[in-house]
Design a protein around this nucleic acid. Structure first.
Lengths: 239, 239
DNA sequence: CGGATGGTTGAAACCGTTCAAAATCTGTGG
DNA sequence: CCACAGATTTTGAACGGTTTCAACCATCCG
């Protein structure tokens, strides 16, 4: 774990050569810090950089007229907020931190020069962005066709696998630094109902959730409750 | 309307030069035909080509264990089924026709050679793919936070604008060649409930729907019912 | 200690589903 | 042009998952 999260994320698809790793290390310094629940880019802004999450959790989201929020993507360490945003005139959604967050700002030039001259690294970046889209699609399936219980289990298991991929799961335990209100903004539920779902999962021993720390006492159990098929994450070792 | 749908779609962001248009014309011949409800690429398949819809309506979808279907994207004429699918080992969802459909199959080489040598056309392709993603995100908002009525209005209005962009709307009327069951697979509703929503919209004179033909007697009305903000489509003339 | 934030609980209302049946439409062959 | 079968739309009634609203409890931190 002596590498940065971006490198760890990209190494999931294939080894990077030392040159590429050095380049990534260079690109992630300096880094910016955000407090919890701060906006990183707002809807309407013209993006000038590509953001890469190094530490902490962030998300894309939209706010509706009535004040409700829907989170569109969960951005974990190593996740890149869109390879090609800088092609857009204006953001149509906001990217904001959920917890305290460290972010690298990569210039369009650096991205384009990677694409032009580092096929290996480019492939990894493509993979990462195809995975993002794929997760988006799976969320649609969940919101459209899964009930609150299965949908919640599915999200928790997805988070578990994504964190595992970047080395942040230990003994089937991981830190879940979100409030229930934030989680329910992902799941399209009210925080009240999510609370009841989580409690049911506790009594069924699917999860052990104490404060911000989550543990799966029986991984197969929650996986089954989620009817989880990991294909959509396009991992190598499909857990 | 003497050009192919792909060209018409891409010309929405900026004029294409004659060379580019000729190239697109060349790439869309020959074309493949599919009957309604046929699969074009199945989940698990390794994609070898990029599909471009020329005529008819298609979609991405996933089938759940219990047999329910969720449609993940609506593919209208001019829509390209992922610029970069060929980078994937295996499709994690299926692309299938909804109606009778004509599709062009573009090789990875042709795509890569466009990217390498036609910056103008490449920009348009990027835009098209950013729009796709953006639509995906807006669907998440709808599924997560809009009720059946607003969600349905929103989808109908989106279809209206997307068809308008490729010249398929005439006098606020367009062909809606889907069954209510197919529509409800997009909206995450049962066909029964969607039927009731559509009837409410009829009595409110939001829509005039006879068979497969849809008309908006008062565009502002349905737009308001959808609380529609067209920014996410990244159009030039934001209707 | 006090105030803020996040988590938990209860009861009632509501939106959307479920299941089953009837009505309507579509296309095809006689 | 009619008859018929299959698909699609429509209707009704009961059920249930999720929301709503309001209150209460726990925890954290200055």
């Amino acid at each position: 774990m002596n590498s940065n999260a971006w490198t760890r994320k990209l190494e999931q698809v294939g080894a990077l050569n030392p040159d590429d790793k050095l380049l990534l290390d260079k690109l992630v310094t300096p880094s910016w810090r955000y407090r919890a629940e701060e906006d990183i880019i707002r809807a309407g802004d013209t993006p000038t950089h590509v953001n890469v999450i190094l530490n902490g959790w962030a998300c894309r989201y939209k706010i509706l007229r009535n004040g409700q929020r829907q989170i569109l993507a969960l951005l974990l360490p190593g996740d890149i907020c869109d390879l090609t945003v800088f092609l857009l005139r204006a953001m149509d959604h906001t990217i904001g931190s959920l917890t305290e967050t460290t972010v690298a700002k990569v210039s369009p030039e650096d991205i384009l020069s990677i694409i032009a001259s580092r096929p290996n690294l480019t492939q990894s970046l493509w993979w990462s962005s195809l995975q993002d889209e794929s997760v988006l699609r799976e969320w649609i399936v969940g919101l459209g066709r899964r009930d609150a219980y299965e949908r919640t289990a599915h999200l928790l298991y997805e988070i578990y696998l994504r964190l595992k991929g970047i080395g942040l799961v230990d003994d089937d335990s991981f830190s879940l630094p979100m409030t229930q209100a934030q989680l329910s903004d992902i799941l399209g539920l009210t925080n009240v109902h999510l609370n009841r779902v989580l409690q049911r999962m506790r009594t069924e021993n699917l999860i052990v959730l104490r404060g911000k720390s989550m543990h799966f006492p029986n991984v197969a159990l929650i996986r089954a409750a989620a009817a989880f098929d990991p294909d959509y994450l396009h991992l190598k070792n499909s857990d």
